[in-house]
Simulated assay, not measured.
Amino acid sequence: MHELGVVIEVIKTVENFARKNALTKIDTLVLQIGELSSMIPRYIEACYPAAVDGTLLKDTKLKIEILPGNAICKKCNKVFNLLENNGNCPNCESKEWDLLCGKEFMIKEIIAF
């Protein structure tokens, strides 16, 4: 489970941001995770409490937003969700597409008091 290591790095990043901006309390951390990324949201949620224990984020709520794995068809230019359509364009059934989004993993928002 590589999610724990990634969460620890996110925590370090947020703590550094908090120190630089004189934040003493963070209420919510919002992460965006693409549905095609290698991060599994339920694993992130599962390891988060242990990872924040003893840190500035110990009482912080975690919110995860899932971003769709969308592609654009090279033949007909239709934008579609890869997972929902098994990698085939629902318009022309082509398997030739360019990935638009879905591999993201980022800190979207740090909500502080």
Rank of each mutant, 00 (worst) to 15 (best):
E96D: 15
A50W: 10
E35N: 12
C101G: 09
I40R: 10
M1A: 13
M106V: 06
V7T: 13
E104K: 06
E109R: 15
N88W: 04
L23N: 04
M39G: 02
T28G: 04
N91M: 08
T55V: 11
K95C: 02
K95I: 06
K63S: 11
G87S: 06
V30M: 03
A51R: 10
L57S: 02
K78Q: 14
C101S: 15
C76H: 11
E93C: 06
G34A: 07
K75M: 04
I66Y: 02
T55E: 08
E109D: 15
N70V: 07
F17A: 09
K63Q: 13
L62A: 10
K61W: 03
L36F: 08
F105R: 09
E45G: 03
I11Q: 00
L23Q: 11
I8Q: 14
F80Y: 15
L62Q: 07
M1V: 12
K103S: 07
K58M: 11
I64P: 06
I66E: 11
V6H: 05
G34I: 09
G69L: 09
T28C: 05
G69I: 11
I11Y: 01
I107M: 08
E93K: 13
T13V: 13
D59R: 08
W97Q: 00
A50K: 12
G87I: 07
K103I: 07
K20V: 01
D27V: 11
L82E: 08
P90K: 04
P49T: 06
E84F: 05
C76A: 08
